[in-house]
Design a binder for these strands. Structure first.
Lengths: 356, 356
DNA sequence: GTTTCAAGCTAAAACGTTTTAAGGAGTTTT
DNA sequence: AAAACTCCTTAAAACGTTTTAGCTTGAAAC
């Protein structure tokens, strides 16, 4: 039923080969023949079957974004911007993007990630793979891809080992910047609401907190370190605990913005003048911190950069180039009334909340 | 270089046809042969070339999400949740999702949407299309798809005409709910910060505002109607203007949350006790309204439902069923201290900001 | 009047599968 | 012993392209 190249050839009185040549502007075809072919194409409304083209060319111009995410989390919440920039950058390079989300389980069994990835590499549908994972990626899970020389890049995780490209964010550096900023502001009693222990990023931010204090000769106090689960409510609970500690801290560095928001709410309920008596600092750069009252200074994750860089690294590999490992630095996102006293690099002040 | 079905056949000492039969569990094959084939598959690490499978089967199990969005807007900002639910629902139905974003222009010329869509329908790469557009969709732009009987569904816009499926949100109904809620709360002097005139959704929300007032016998006052551009800053400006009007309104219904946030900021700066002296109401249900102080009640767009429904409608068409048109209702998102006095249906109170 | 050359076109193979009709080898029925 | 049936297997066509080597044809060169 659909019109094929043969139909066009017949109508134009030429062979399919000629039609193909005309359409791809190859070989030498007389002007007259060209015209006849083009007319036939027009009249029949012919479009090449891309499937067939792909098969014979062995290329699909398509890459896959494979996201391994816990079933209860949404891809959008955090990675919307990442996807956005990835899509843009990939398109600009002439590739298409297909997406698939996989959870921890498949048919009730733990998902065999290795198997799933190998499948992707071998089914010839994709020319490259962007691997996004909420939890750490093991070398063994991707070693097949390396062996097959299949172009891929891991995003938001680091995987050491021969032949693996990744692009990740410098959580340690970002957190350190934040704490050092607080130190330079004159804070000495700095508390930390950390994220879950099993979370690598939480761990890095926590290490940075410790290191920053130690390096500045500030004693680490056990009572100033609370643990949350990255959700707002746990930030509330932690802050409530913290407010029972004496002497009170003058600043709290929270491992993410959601918990910082919870902490802010509690502090305000207790009548504390936030940022005057107690500074609250977040991490992530989600939209909402701009509109709390007062806005919450935070460490901004360069999610847009992340996607762009991932695309760049992947495309380079597809086109035969070398892979690459990149760690992206974070900027501090500060607000009116926060003087930048850090190294002066990286910080930026955005338009945004100007409450009070 | 890649191992094909022929390699497997040779190693197993059978014909390619037999290998295919074994792998797809069709026809009758002796246990012994099955075992030999499976062993060969295993040993060679063979995976079928899906491209070839697709070509011969004429199916790809893939649908395309085509988003027409202004270049300066991000897909993620608003549609993250939509994409998320669409992806989930589509996967559950056994299809893959590919995404492409197109702007208003292509190669410097206005994009020929009709042409772009026809291309998609005919290149045989996709079995269906989800069409997401920021601006209205014309019948003529999709009539080719209808003629080709290509399964598609328009999301977030309504297109009347034979054979067109869409799923849209009831902006009029949502806005009306909001204004009626305010009326039932006893408000009479209700202002409206509307969205841009050329924006269909803004227009609908505006109409609902007018109708709600009229139906409740409340005079419409010209000075109470301001126009913004959906951005926060325009909400600020509008509120500043509004505060010069006498008598002051006791409530402001904003056409979206961003402007509501701007309005809230100004009101607070002027020392107005928001929600006591002046109620501010938003529209959209973005995350940030939960964390402003006070939180802003709003009309929640069922973006998740939107994606799910789109998937459902599309898949049904692909599988030979009929298309469908659906308008999804909105719920009010209210906060502590807001008593629900509406019709009691649809409203829901979410966990969230509890400031003050 | 051959030979040479270029221009224009095409036949056929290739890409890697699936599917179908038919073939061969036993086994059972008549 | 022929006929009928079952099982198992496969040859070959089909899917719709691209690509390459080679074939015509006519003109230019000798």
């Amino acid at each position: 039923m659909p019109v094929t190249i043969k139909d066009v050839a017949r109508l134009a009185g030429v062979s399919p080969a000629t039609v193909s040549l005309v359409l791809s502007n190859k070989g030498q075809v007389s002007e007259d023949t060209k015209r006849r072919v083009l007319e036939a194409v027009q009249k029949l409304g012919y479009r090449p079957n891309v499937l067939a083209q792909n098969l014979v060319k062995g290329r699909t111009n398509t890459v896959l974004l494979c996201a391994f995410i816990r079933e209860d989390r949404k891809l959008s919440t955090f990675y919307g911007e990442l996807i956005n920039s990835l899509l843009t950058a990939i398109s600009l390079s002439g590739y298409y993007l297909q997406m698939v989300v996989k959870g921890e389980f498949f048919n009730g069994h733990p998902l065999d990630k290795r198997e799933a990835l190998l499948e992707i590499a071998k089914n010839r549908l994709f020319e490259g793979l962007v691997l996004l994972s909420h939890w750490p990626v093991q070398y063994a899970e991707v070693s097949d891809l390396v062996r097959e020389k299949f172009p891929f890049v891991v995003v938001n995780q680091r995987v050491e080992g021969e032949g693996i490209s990744y692009v990740d964010i410098d959580h340690y550096g970002g957190a350190k910047k934040a704490v050092e900023y607080l130190v330079h502001q004159g804070h000495v009693r700095i508390a930390h609401i950390r994220g879950p222990r099993e979370h690598r990023h939480a761990e890095e931010r926590y290490r940075a907190y410790l290191d920053a204090l130690v390096e500045h000769g500030i004693p680490v106090r056990r009572e100033y370190i609370l643990e949350g689960d990255f959700r707002r409510l746990s930030g509330r609970r932690a802050m409530e605990e913290l407010l029972a500690v004496r002497p009170l801290p003058t600043a709290v560095f929270c491992a993410n913005d959601k918990m910082a928001i919870g902490a802010l709410q509690v502090a305000k309920e207790r009548g504390i003048r936030v940022h005057e008596d107690l500074t609250i600092f977040g991490f992530d750069g989600i939209e909402a911190v701009k509109y709390t009252d007062p806005p919450i200074p935070t460490v901004e994750q360069p999610l847009g950069e992340l996607g762009k860089m991932a695309a760049e690294i992947l495309v380079k590999q597809i086109q035969g180039g070398e892979g690459k490992r990149v760690i992206l630095g974070c900027n501090l996102l500060l607000w009116d009334g926060f003087l930048v006293k850090g190294d002066g690099k990286g910080e930026k002040t955005q338009e945004g909340g100007r409450l009070r």
